[in-house]
Amino acid sequence: MIIDPYHHPADTMTAEAEVTMRRSTFAVASGKGGTGKSTFAINLSMALAALGHEVILVDADLGGADLSTLLGIHAPRYTLKDFIQGDVSYLPEILEPTPSPHLRLICGGTDIISVSNPYYQQKVKLIRALAQLQADYIVVDLGPDITFNNLDFFNAAPVGFLVTQNMDAMILGFYRFLKAAFVRRLKQEFRNESYILSIISDFQNRGWSHARRDLIGSIRAASREAQKHLDAVLETFQPKLVFNMVESPAARKTADQMFSFILENFGFRLQTVGFIPRDRDVEKAYARNEPYLLRFPRSAASKALYEVLAACGLNYTRDGVRVSGFSDFLAYVKVEVPGWNLLKI
């Protein structure tokens, strides 16, 4: 095999992967640590499971996997490490049951450092295997950093959630992540068009501030095909923003500002799908390794989570029945986990 030393293998990642990812796969990212990604991923998965869907939650925070702990599973039989290293060749073998009969977990492997940076082939293998899992929804919890790994998983999933807080550092963090993901997507989409690639490289090299608004315009102006292709990309690149630990209505204003800023500069729509308040109940449930949705189903955070579901059009049961409101939703949550400590509520 001849390896072109100038071609970075990671650049072809999404090209191979995108073909196989399913529409019902959600990635959860943030660009900054500690914004509440894992909490969101767990509770979103639980909510979908409560509505009867078969859900698989994947801990792809390869450097800091903690979902198994947060779900009270202390000794998973297998983790992604075993699959990535080839000790287990069939991904469904490493599915762990959770307290919910409809939710299964793929644990991340944290015990060796090398897993946090899998090689290209390993990533492709993982994404392919994820795409073949039998489930209604797959929720992939990512790590906080702007790495190829996280960008590629984010781009490979048809729906990407970004969990942020209304604080400068968190906003900048998700913006950087989102921009890196978007430009990476463009480079992948236009990988066979050297002229467009040169526009993108030029844009990167000149410094974003001068050329930023020209990027989309320059690609559009290049040719009719490029314009069509770009419009198709912009239509499918629809990240969903979740404000977490919200403490004031100012978050709504930030959401609007970010929407306009992104639309103006990059031409895609950043939909804010919810505002989850800072809630003591979330912390208490987290400390007990339980999803807040089950421990404190009536909490403000649970209500906000339901609103996220509704904003995303996910408020349907597996049988296609529309959930008409929060109290309707709670009825499903209650029957979901008979074994859970619901009685103590």
Binding site: M1, I3, H8, P9, A10, D11, I84, Q85, G86, D87, N117, P118, Y119, Y120, Q121, Q122, K123, D145, I146, T147, F148, N149, A180, V183, R184, K187, S201, Q204
Partner: peptide, 19 residues
């Protein structure tokens, strides 16, 4: 080590963004 030859195609996250 198991799996594909890892000395091929190393992915270095330190190369961000888009070298």
């Amino acid at each position: 080590r198991r799996g594909p030859d890892r000395r091929q195609n190393p992915v270095d996250p330190a190369d961000l963004p888009f070298p």
